[in-house]
Design a protein around this nucleic acid. Structure first.
Lengths: 130, 130
DNA sequence: TTTTTGTTCTATACAAAATAGAACAGATTT
DNA sequence: AAATCTGTTCTATTTTGTATAGAACAAAAA
């Protein structure tokens, strides 16, 4: 899996890393149970600081997406028992995103089609999706 | 239209204001051509600084959602001629949001249903939506 | 045993966010 | 015409977030 860091981006580096890992999991490039690179080697690959990768991992762990085993490493979690809070935050993000889409004049049909297209795209990369 | 500021939130105040204005427009509580409160009166109502509201207004203007007439005031813009860049940024946000939803185990059906439900909810508040 | 692992600590540098106060000039209201 | 209100601009301070750096620790892995 290839991760690209854009230093000019207004998105913090640790979030760029987190987001691309999430996409990698969704596309099936990395699967539950598999280990992520160590914070040191990953940082060296990406050309960023160790603490930045560490922050990204803890960000993903707080979302329940990975498990960090102390003194061992980080592993992709199984998609199960996610707390209500995580789901509610996602729902709020959907609400805001849809609101903004409507405000700039996107018809509802275009929104549903966009979502369907993206879902199909992920399914194409990852056959295991339900 | 009621706007609530959560000072404990990790979302910056100026974004909380922007987001709730966007939702207000999507729901039809405020319509194109209508004026927003002055930065000073709005700041007084919300209990925040004038410059924070000003930042929010400029943030909305940069998105093309409102127009700021110098020495006069801010007005809701008409949903027209939005640049490709704005739409592409929205598409990226949809992509990431869907990826995260899939990763935490949401079935695709639940995602499309959530989007449909939210769209219906906005339509119920705002009959003018296409 | 040596290396690697995440963790923890101190430290520095920079940018963003939020507040505050003052002043300006144009628009609006009275 | 005068007074008020408008967004704008400027300086200033405080707090928080981001990113880097280096060092040390103890447990796990090779």
């Amino acid at each position: 899996m290839i991760i690209r860091i854009e230093s000019e981006s207004d998105i913090p580096i640790y979030l760029q890393i987190s987001n691309q890992i999430i996409e990698g999991i969704a596309r099936g490039y990395i699967k539950a149970g598999q280990a992520l690179p160590s914070v040191r080697s990953f940082a060296a690959d990406l050309g960023v600081n160790m603490h930045t990768v560490n922050k990204s991992y803890h960000h993903l762990e707080q979302k329940g997406i990975i498990r960090i085993v102390p003194k061992s490493g980080a592993v992709i979690a199984s998609p199960q028992d996610f707390n209500e809070s995580t789901i509610n935050k996602l729902k709020d993000e959907y609400k805001h995103l849809i609101a903004e889409s409507l405000v700039i004049g996107m018809p509802t049909i275009q929104i549903t089609e966009l979502v369907d297209t993206l879902l199909e795209e992920f399914k194409k990369s990852n056959g295991q999706l339900k």
